[in-house]
């Protein structure tokens, strides 16, 4: 009876993909939020000037 196959590298790759993609999505969400906030501040200033 042979033991379980050694597939550690594949497991690491798998979890790297899972958390990597989720992280990329989070970063994209955050950066979009920041851009929106900057836009909002700019718009508020413009509104005051008028």
């Amino acid at each position: 009876m042979e033991g379980p196959a050694n597939t550690l590298t594949y497991m690491i790759a798998g979890f790297a993909v899972i958390f990597g993609i989720m992280l990329i999505y989070l970063v994209s969400l955050l950066s979009r939020w920041n851009n929106l906030r900057k836009d909002a501040d700019l718009l508020k200033e413009l509104e005051k000037k008028e």
Partner: peptide, 11 residues
């Protein structure tokens, strides 16, 4: 740990 496939099964 899965008996045949090993660690990759955790994915």
């Amino acid at each position: 740990l899965e008996a045949v496939m090993g660690q990759v099964q955790k994915v």
